[in-house]
């Protein structure tokens, strides 16, 4: 299941504590969360609602800074970086696929895919060419000038994936990528994500509740009460009723 380069660690968190609020309203989201993902690997974070999956994903993505612990992504320590440095890091190394796609409805499909490139300061013409190529790669050639709302859910998620990968990020973060999709479309999307993860320079972390897609994971990290309970390679070992 693993590629030859998969042994090198892509993402590592150690002793992450994360809580929100204080006093009586204090909510602990992560408790000494230790997590590892390897290069060339597609790893899923699963667990019941409120177990801390999204918080851990946000910490890995550098959009939340934990109170304690260390975060390392492709050799770069994120803890201790300033907001500006984190923003730069995300810009260069991270791609995002959001639960609700977050495609900008007033922009064309092509323009949506160009966004990460333009944020990086890529020239317009280059951005257009790269975005077109990426859309072709995800099977959306000919739909470049349409609006996202004119596409089906599966097509919109493909656009979101194209947008997440167009700037060739090392780490692809997917938050519930199939929650708005039917079974077949979800499977197609996950096959595409899995294929894209097969590179020693890339790692894919997927947060999901959707047990139908567990089979696409190289490994599955099960979370409970703010920490990683166990990591399995075989989805059948999980009690899906519990998730």
């Amino acid at each position: 299941m693993s590629t030859p380069a998969a042994h090198a660690v892509a993402v590592r968190t150690r002793g992450i504590d994360m809580f929100f609020g204080d006093g009586e309203t204090k909510v602990t989201a992560l408790k000494q969360a230790d997590f590892e993902a390897n290069r060339g690997e597609l790893i899923m974070l699963v667990g019941p609602s409120g177990c801390g999956k999204t918080t851990l994903l946000s910490v890995i993505a550098g959009t939340l800074t934990p109170q304690t612990g260390t975060v390392e992504v492709f050799g770069q320590r994120l803890d201790g970086l300033s907001q500006e440095e984190l923003t730069t890091f995300r810009r260069k190394h991270l791609g995002f696929v959001f639960q609700s796609f977050n495609l900008i409805p007033t922009l064309t499909v092509l323009e949506n895919v160009m966004v990460p490139l333009l944020i990086q300061g890529t020239a317009q013409a280059v951005a257009v060419a790269k975005a077109r190529a990426m859309l072709e790669k995800v099977g959306l050639k000919g739909r470049e000038e349409g609006r996202p709302n004119a596409l089906s859910g599966g097509q919109q998620q493909r656009v979101a994936i194209a947008r997440a990968l167009v700037h060739e990020p090392s780490l692809l973060i997917c938050d519930e990528p199939t929650s708005a999709l039917d079974k077949d479309t979800g499977a197609q999307i996950m096959q595409m994500v899995r294929d894209l993860s097969r590179s020693p320079e890339r790692c894919v972390v997927v947060v999901t509740h959707d047990h139908r897609i567990f089979r696409f994971a190289d490994r599955i990290a099960e979370m409970e009460d703010g920490r990683i309970r166990r990591v399995v390679e075989d989805a059948s070992l999980l009690d899906t009723n519990h998730l």
């Binding site: 993505a61 730069t88 995300r90 995002f96 900008i104 966004v115 944020i119 990086q120």
Partner: peptide, 15 residues
């Protein structure tokens, strides 16, 4: 109305 898109753009690394 565009707040979530601006948040997404922020997450993608726009300062």
């Amino acid at each position: 109305e565009n707040l979530k898109y601006f948040a997404a753009i922020k997450a993608m690394g726009a300062g």
